[in-house]
Amino acid sequence: MPTVAIPSLLRNLTSGEESITVPGTTIREVIDNLEDRYPGLKARLCEGDRIKPGIAIYVNGLLTRGSILERVDAEAEIHFLPAIGGGRSAPR
């Protein structure tokens, strides 16, 4: 199962848990499963069915396209980090 690193500012929602293993084959499924266990998490990360602008997703240390459709494998380690500048400008 993928492992999600919980950002320190969201750990109040996970009773301090720093890292959580949840099922899911896409970022969307992972977030939905997280939400089942820790209600309120999804609202902090998503706006509707999209990742909030300003949040970047890293899978196994690599920056992804920031889409919840991104596929993740069972070994994946997922990070939600503040998005950083430099030209992120895909039409959304």
Partner: peptide
């Protein structure tokens, strides 16, 4: 509105 341009949101 929030736009996602150039340097993020």
């Amino acid at each position: 509105k929030v736009a996602d341009l150039g340097e993020g949101a």
